[in-house]
């Protein structure tokens, strides 16, 4: 039980990072982006490539930072991957979504996002192979924190949680202390008023993709670090991330953070009563529950 709680918080932090970008883009561009979770995959694989590259350039970089399995090269690779994934998100918008937006309605964008997801997922599979990959072949033993109740934690998990929380704190400071943050929130609340208040919407869309992509990349790497990297990572995470945005209320950044933790915890706690095979269905049950009890989520506003 306590193990499920701890695992749930960890998974929750990863889902939160993914959901922040999704909720912003969904709110501003008004479409459910089913390809957002593929940004996590892009991020995870980009970090894998650069991790290997740096390790090859300088062997010292390939050494793990004890007690983690995380290497110096991977730490740098995470930052590069965040930037690259952010840029990919902007490019995908330019190449596909922007054009579909100009041609058709919001629902065409949803269709297009499914197509984009399928293309990205399978191209990653073609490039990197269908079998799972790991950042490190070294086995890092989990630390037994407690025997009764039994609780195992890996150092990498602690790092992931701390890093995810740190990223969220930085984001919070930006949102609550800088005029750029006010502008982001203003755009989320009322795009047309934001525009007449001097905010350039199309530049803001680019920035939102950059941030969303960057956060998704971090989430992808953290997922890879604590699980494994495979081409269907996006397929497996898309529903939980959507569930997180719906729990939090579409458009609410803080809601997405909270929603991520709620979905992570609920999915892991569900394992106490359900066989693990059923866990992919849990996010759907959460979505249904929210739609019945509080359709606009914890912090969402009513809008149709």
């Amino acid at each position: 039980m306590i193990q499920n709680l701890v695992d749930g918080v960890l998974v929750g932090s990863i889902l939160s990072l993914g959901a922040i970008g999704l909720t912003m883009a969904m709110h501003m561009l008004r479409f459910a982006n089913f390809s957002h979770a593929e940004l996590l995959s892009i991020g995870a694989y980009a970090a894998l490539v650069f991790d290997g590259l740096f390790g090859a350039i300088h062997p010292a970089l390939a050494e793990a930072i004890p007690p983690l399995s995380l290497t110096w090269s991977l730490s740098i690779a995470i930052l590069i991957s965040m930037a690259l994934t952010g840029v990919s998100a902007v490019l995908i918008d330019r190449l596909v979504f922007k054009r579909v937006r100009a041609k058709g309605g919001e629902l065409s964008m949803v269709f297009a996002s499914f197509g984009v997801a399928m293309i990205i997922r399978n191209i990653l599979g073609l490039i990197f192979g269908l079998s799972p990959k790991l950042y490190s072949q070294d086995i890092v033993f989990a630390i037994v924190v407690s025997r009764d109740p039994f609780l195992l934690i890996k150092p990498d998990q602690v790092f992931t949680l701390v890093a995810a929380l740190l990223i969220m704190v930085i984001l919070h400071v930006i949102l609550s202390r800088t005029t750029f943050g006010y502008a982001l929130r203003a755009v989320a609340e009322n795009p047309s008023l934001a525009q007449v208040s001097g905010i350039n919407l199309s530049r803001m869309i680019v920035l939102i993709w950059l941030i969303g992509g960057g956060l998704a990349a971090a989430a992808g790497v953290f997922y890879g670090l604590t699980n494994q990297i495979n081409p269907v990572l996006g397929r497996d995470l898309v529903l939980p991330i959507f569930a997180a945005t719906i729990v939090g209320g579409i458009g609410s950044i803080y809601g997405a953070v909270l929603g991520g933790f709620i979905v992570g915890l609920a999915s892991n706690l569900a394992l106490v009563i359900l066989p693990s095979g059923y866990s992919p269905a849990v996010p759907f049950l959460i979505i249904l529950a929210v739609l019945i009890v509080r359709p606009h989520g914890l912090f969402g506003e009513e809008r149709t």
Binding site: A183, R185, A186, E189, N190, A194, G198
Partner: peptide, 17 residues
């Protein structure tokens, strides 16, 4: 015509940014 989720000060800082 104002941003409800921002404080009054933030509303002004936003247009003055």
């Amino acid at each position: 015509n104002i941003f409800r989720s921002l404080t009054i000060r933030q509303n002004l800082d936003l247009v003055l940014r």
